[in-house]
């Protein structure tokens, strides 16, 4: 068996360009996922607000209970039947963001509910409204607890983003497949892509570790 990495070397600029698109797709969907996750997670804190709670619970059930690939295809290939033609990049970001939001929402809810009840009571007892207490007392503490599970979620998102190559988005996976289609060097190119994804997830892990350490140094984490 002989390995020939020359297509990887000659296709290097293409792969880097693809990696850049992967970073773009994942960062935007990460942001979207966090915003959605925060809203959905907070919407599930109070079951007595039945409509909000019901909507958020349904969102979680549907998005978490169906494959990401199917959701992406519905956005990209399904919606045009209703005359809704979204650009591929938007479909990819929306699909990944909505999907990730479901998982982030459970991280958000878990972290908020893990904060001792006494913190909210103390905040309310000095006269803060529930919104002020949430913003100034509960969320700052909850965010710190979200970081480790969010790290997992970010890494899953980076890897899941390879699926958007099927929506004609020119991400790392897509660029790799283009190189394979002319060089027929599947193993070499896939190994190179795997390595590049590994670098991306590794950098994410390091960045989050850094953030956590800084918070710890600031006394935010016990």
């Amino acid at each position: 068996m002989d390995l020939d990495f020359s297509p990887v070397w000659s296709g290097w600029p293409q792969l880097l360009q693809g990696a850049l698109v992967t970073v773009e797709v994942t960062s935007v969907s990460l942001l979207l996922g966090c915003v959605l996750g925060l809203l959905i997670g907070m919407g599930r804190l109070h079951p007595e607000r039945r409509w909000v709670y019901g909507f958020c619970t349904a969102y979680l059930a549907v998005i978490r209970g169906t494959p990401l690939l199917v959701q992406l295809f519905i956005l990209f290939f399904g919606l045009p039947q209703f005359g809704i033609m979204l650009p591929a990049f938007l479909c990819g970001v929306l699909g990944l963001g909505i999907y990730s939001g479901a998982y982030v929402s459970e991280i958000v809810r878990g972290a908020i509910q893990s904060i001792d009840r006494g913190q909210m009571e103390a905040a309310r007892s000095i006269g803060l409204s529930s919104r002020q207490a949430m913003l100034n007392v509960i969320l700052p503490q909850a965010v710190v607890r979200m970081i480790p599970p969010l790290g997992n979620e970010f890494i899953a998102l980076i890897k899941n983003s390879a699926l958007v190559s099927l929506l004609t988005i020119h991400d790392l996976m897509h660029e790799g497949q283009k190189i394979i289609s002319v060089s027929y060097r599947s193993l070499e190119v896939y190994l190179a892509i795997a390595l590049m994804y590994f670098v991306l997830t590794g950098l994410t892990t390091l960045a989050l570790r850094h953030v956590e350490q800084r918070l710890r140094a600031g006394g935010m984490v016990q």
Binding site: D116, Q141, M220
Partner: peptide, 9 residues
Amino acid sequence: FQSFNLFAH
């Protein structure tokens, strides 16, 4: 409060 409940952050 009995358990102080200082804002930990």
